[in-house]
Structures are given as C-alpha cells and as structure tokens.
Write a protein that binds this DNA or RNA. Structure first.
Lengths: 354, 354
DNA sequence: CGGTTGCATGAAACCGGTTACAGCGAGATG
DNA sequence: CATCTCGCTGTAACCGGTTTCATGCAACCG
C-alpha cells in the first residue's frame, strides 16, 4: 500500500468518491456502501476503504447526498424575528434554542435558521418557510411561537413535513407540539400563596390569545375554585409578557379600592415590572404584596428580594422537540403533544409567610 | 396557453426544471437562465417561464444547485455550546445571534448552526467544524468566542474559507473579526466616575486571557494615567464574567483596609454580583460605592438602583459580521477588523454625584 | 456434475440543477 | 449575394453522491 502524500494530508483536499474508489481499486458503489451499508461489504475491502478515506481526508459531499437521497439531515428553525415585535427578545428563547441545538446535534442533525425577509418577490412572499423547506429538502421543522401565527405557518404544519411547535397546538398529520404544564404551574403558584396566608390573590395574565396566557389564567381560576376563594373580575388584569405591561397592570391593580395581598404574575418579565410598580407605590414585597412569577428566567434570581416563580424546563423543551421531530423523521407515528412539568422555585418575594 | 391544473396549484408539487421546461416548450438551460441570468433570455420567453413557474409553484432544488455551483448560500455558525461551560448562556449572545441572523437573511443567506457533538468517531473528532464546512459547501463561517479556543478553530480560520470571528482576533487570509471598542468603553467608564467625584476607582476585570477582558483593563489603566490617578495593584481583581465571579471579586475589594469609592466592573453580570456583595456588606450604591458595568444586558436596567454601564452595539455585531462575511464571499478583499463604538448609559449606580 | 444459493462487487442510470459550446435565424455589411 | 455579427436557444457533459440490477464466483446440494 503506497502511502498517500502531498496535499492529501490536508484537511482540505477535495477528494470525491470516485477518486477514493480509484485509489482503493474498487468501484464508487462499493465505497458508498462502506459508509452507508457497511455490513454488506467484505471486511477487508471495508477496512482498506476506511483507512484510505482517513488518509486522504475524504468527506462526502452532503449536497450530492441530499440530492440523491432527499434526506438533508437538517431541521429548519422557524423563528420569526420580526423587528417590529419584541417577542423574540424574550430571554426565555435563548435557553430553548441552545437545548434544541444540542439535542439535535446529538442526533446527527443540523439546525438551519431560516431566512424570511430575504427575497420577498411574488404574491406568495409569505410562504418563505414553505419554500425554504422544499428547496433545501429539510427533514423537519421546529416552530417557535413568538406571538403571531400567520397562515403560512399553518400551511407549513399541514404540508406533511415533520413539524414540532413550541407552546402552541398545531394542525397537521405529522405535526405535534411541546408545552409546559401552564395550568398546573399556575395552580402551584396560587396554592403556594394560599399556604403563605394570602387570600386576596390577583393575577396579571399573558395576552389572552396566546396559549400560555390562556392556560395560566385557567390554572389560576381553577385553583381559586378549589380553595374556595372568590373570583373577583377586578383581580384579573391582562399584560403582554413584557416589563412595561407588567408595570402597567400592577398599577391598575393598585388603583383599586381594595388591593390584593398577593399577585400571581404569568411571566417573570412582567413580574419585574410589577415589582417596580409596587416599589413606586411605596409598598413592600413581600410584606404588603407577595408575588409569584412564571418562567424562572435569569433575572428572577437577581432582582431583590428574589422572585418566587414557576420554573419551566427550558432545556427540556429543546430536548423534547428534538426527540419528537427526529422520531417523526425516522418514520415513527406522530407523537402526542408533550406537556413538561413545572416546578415552584421559592424566593424572597413570597417569604416569609404572613 | 392551457391553464395548469390539479396538484400543480399546491405549494407542494415537486416540479423539476425539466418539467417546467417541457411545459414551456423550452430547454432546461433556458429555464435555468431565466433565474440566474435573466437578461440574456428573450423577454417573452422569460415572462412565460416565470408565469408558468409561478403557476406550478416551481422551486429550484438547492442541493442540486449547490452541487453544480459549489455555492450553498449558507453561513455556518460556530458556537461551542458545551454543557460543561456556562459561556454560551450569557444573555449577551442572544441579541448578537438575532442581529446576525437578520442581517444574513437580508443578504440572502441562511445560518446553519453546526452540530459538534454529533459523530465523534476517529482521531480527528475535533475537526467537526472543518468537516461540516466542506461537506455542506458552506460559503463562510461566523465564530462566536465562548471562552475556549481550541486548535480546530484555528485550522478553520486558516483554511481559507471566509471567516468572521466575534470579539477575538483570528489568523487566516480570509479571516477578520468584529469587536467593540473595549478600551474606549472602559475609559468612558473611568472618566465618568472621575467626573462624579470619585478618586479611588477599582476594577473587576474579565479573565486576562480573553480579549475583552484584557482590553477593558487596558482602557481602565490608560484612563487612570490620563487623569493622573495612582495605579493601585490591590484595586485590580480578576473576575470571570459571571455573577459569582463578580460577587467574589467585590468581596475581595471590600476586605482591603482601604476600600474604593467606585468600581469599574468589566461585565454587567459580574456587576450584579458586585451589587449583591456590596449590599451584603451593609453598604449602599451609589452612596458608598459607585458602580459602572459593561455590556448593557437586559438586567442592567432592571436591577435597583439601575446599573450605569458601557453599552455594546449588540445588533451591530451581527450586522457587521454579516457584512464582512458576505463581502468576502462575494470576492472582496478581506476587510480590516471592525471596532464598534461603545456608549455610556447612565443609571442609578453612579448618580447622583458625590 | 448441473443447478441453486448467496455473497461481494461493478456498470450505469439517476437525483436536479448549471454551463461550455455549438447552432440557428435575422439583420447588417462589403 | 456571401459573410459577419449578434441575440437567443438547445445539446450534452458535469457536479458527487446513491441505488437498482446484473454478474462473477465460491460453496453447497442432490
């Protein structure tokens, strides 16, 4: 076996499968089999091919492979980062993204962040995602709900491509979703406040049209009923999941004649805004008003007196989404929606008890 | 012209260029030219091809196109999200990522988040990035420095592929980098504290082996010299860019006999830790100690009394990186390193003046 | 010993684009 | 009228893999 020399030791030599086949004295077909169907090829041949491949730094061209097999080993990420809306800035998404990327990597898939705004030519500009999926032979997509839900996303989920949505139910034969136990988490929060001796428990909700917003409100209401506490409409104020919305909502609550002694805030960002509004009103947390948030974003631990909150399993989101999409890609039945458990993290904003 | 019917109105019909050519009564070559070289084809033909393409929802197959042209219109993102290190969790990165993605989208490029951990077989497992670049015909890469810098990244930057690094100088003929004016920002901070009447100005630095860490320290020292303030070694404590490091570093500063009346903290996360340490020591910000951070991450505005900080142009990072990598892809000369201006954002932690 | 079986391999078509090159017709030119 | 130019288009090779099908060959069987 003559040693392979010169440019071949470089990581950058561009050897094709035919070149490699020639060096080994076999046909391209055999080389291909060595990589895709090793067990059908003779052990000696296989070893020789692998050895030579390593020497010349052979790397199969994924475009050619995708062209021939229609499998790209890429999953598209649909994440509408529209400038006009602040949705995507939510710190929540970073951890999800990292979890997703890591989980997909571990399963051999790359994550392609789809460009949207690129070429907006033609009447069907809104179908940029669908187009990208077809053009790149994407094996699946993951959709992060950042608040809007335009029709093209529906077309995408119903197009038959394996599709996993985060925090939002989707239609489609090969579409499923992953979400947190929003209602359960909200119940945990209310129950906790009740245990701490609070009885006038208000809530600042997320936008009613979002799934997490609606679910958390439902959990709040359910738990009030279970505890035999009265439902007071003036104790339910809608926020927007962002700081300013939480701030405004809290001010509304404080303006009422009869103010609450605890508030379940359906998002940590809003809770921080609420904290600020409470401070501005000259009241103290938790002495005057106890607060429980939702999400457990980084700030929750940092802002004094520490925000008690319902933690979502953010990394779990990514893992669950990766699992679901890869299993569908591999031909498994569409898995049922996955609901991740939430846990209560107790910090200063709800302790000590009254 | 007979109307195209049936499955052809679906977004999912999988028409090839030959099919489209047949429908139009032209050759595949002409169709190809319509999309890649419109001006050379007769206006009538062109219109008819475009019209028919729209009707049947023709989408060119990117794998085939990449195979033929060796251009993928994809840029790889090298972002080492190793679980063991917390680096990538830094909130700083999310905004950069979004800026980058948006800027690349606008230029017609997709962003591929490269899997690393995937297949770690063979002695060259560390070259996963290099392999991915070749396999997918990536047009360029952007590297986010998350603290470590293993040799494979160097091989990548020197491999000749257009390469932009964030916050870290790189070698390579087609490699450049984008960074903030770290030294200038640090000088702004020190100058600001000086204007506020502080004279005993300490610093908590980033790790000395990181570029931003070293640069910010240099700026601090330069400005002390310019102002004629003494350099006191015990006023320089190294942190790690994270909360706990800032906390520990601040405690060290407070233990000294002669404590500073101001601290320039080279990162907001560390500054929040420092705030906490100051609070635990029974001291007040800004009365006893004024604080200026660096980065302007979201928390900076949220944590009482509001953190004065040197803001980095995070979205600008993404845009600058996209510009640089795309221009190199298009054959332009390797642009010089780009240094983005920093600005001072004044909040409660340094006001009112003494 | 002829026929079956099974293993290992090669030849060639194919995936869906791009592009070098040749060719064709019309109008301009000598 | 022959020729040249120019604008437009088609033919066919090519990109680098995969996969079907056929085949050579050895072992195995009756």
């Amino acid at each position: 076996m003559k040693p392979v020399t010169a440019r071949c030791d470089s990581v950058w030599s561009v050897a094709t499968i035919r070149e490699l086949a020639r060096l080994c004295g076999v046909s391209p077909a055999t080389v291909s089999r060595v990589f895709n169907n090793p067990e059908v090829v003779n052990a000696n041949t296989r070893e020789q091919v692998l050895r030579t491949a390593r020497q010349i730094g052979y790397q199969p061209n994924e475009s050619a492979r995708t062209l021939a097999t229609k499998k790209s080993f890429m999953v598209g990420l649909v994440w509408d980062t529209d400038h006009r809306r602040p949705g995507w800035r939510h710190p929540f998404f970073q951890e999800i993204l990292i979890g997703l990327k890591t989980a997909l990597s571990g399963r051999g898939y790359h994550l392609l962040m789809l460009a949207t705004s690129g070429d907006t030519g033609g009447e069907r500009a809104e179908d940029a995602y669908v187009r990208a999926v077809r053009r790149h032979n994407l094996d699946g997509v993951v959709m992060i709900d950042s608040g809007t839900w335009d029709p093209s996303l529906r077309r995408l989920s119903e197009s038959g491509i394996p599709c996993v949505s985060l925090d939002r139910p989707v239609e489609g034969s090969r579409a499923t979703y992953v979400t947190s136990d929003n209602a359960g988490g909200a119940r945990l929060a209310v129950q906790h406040l009740h245990e701490r001796g609070r009885r006038a428990i208000a809530t600042i909700t997320g936008p009613a049209h979002t799934r997490p917003g609606a679910e958390r409100l439902r959990g709040y209401q359910d738990e009030l009923s279970r505890l035999g506490l009265p439902h007071r409409p003036e104790f339910v104020v809608e926020g927007d999941f962002y700081l300013s919305g939480g701030h405004a909502a809290m001010r509304r609550l404080l303006e009422a004649d009869d103010r609450p002694d605890a508030v379940f805030v359906a998002g940590d960002e809003m809770a921080v805004g609420a904290l600020r509004a409470i401070g501005e009103a000259g009241l103290k947390v938790p002495e005057d008003i106890a607060l429980v948030g939702f999400d457990d974003i980084e700030v929750a631990a940092l802002v004094p007196p520490g925000l008690t909150t319902v933690a979502q399993d953010k990394a779990g989101f990514g893992t669950a989404a990766a699992e679901a999409v890869v299993s569908m890609i591999n031909g498994a039945d569409t898995p049922p929606p996955r609901v991740l458990p939430t846990t209560l993290v107790v910090r200063g904003s709800s302790t000590p008890p009254l």
